[in-house]
């Protein structure tokens, strides 16, 4: 499988990465080089094989239902590019 330029643009938008027109051809080439590299996986017989969901199978540990965190609004917004009254501030979102 290989990607065309429209797909490159679609993927970039899905990933929220701006690409310029001049970026598209070489991105296409690089992505296709990688896709070409992984192509040989198609030849592996995986019939009846379970996809791995956890490398180290074990029961999932669970937390007790206790409030152990919070009340650190100052720390939460400390690194924010824009904040006001402990809110994060972003360009207006149109619903």
């Amino acid at each position: 499988m290989s990607v065309d330029q429209a797909t490159v643009r679609r993927i970039a938008h899905l990933a929220r990465i701006k690409v310029s027109d001049e970026d598209v051809p070489h991105l296409q080439e690089e992505l296709n080089a990688i896709l070409n590299f992984v192509e040989e996986l198609a030849s592996v017989d995986v019939d009846g094989v379970e996809p791995m969901t956890s490398v180290m199978p074990m029961p999932m540990k669970k937390r007790r239902d206790e409030v152990t965190e919070g009340s650190i609004a100052k720390d939460i917004v400390a690194n924010a590019p824009a904040s006001e009254d402990h809110f994060f501030v972003v360009p207006k979102v149109v619903e």
Partner: peptide, 27 residues
Amino acid sequence: TSRSKLFSGASTVFGNEPNANVSLVDA
């Protein structure tokens, strides 16, 4: 209905100050 969130220990109480019920995980 639970005291803390699904994947963090921050409170689920409604109506607190902005980002008060937020853990590092939630952010």
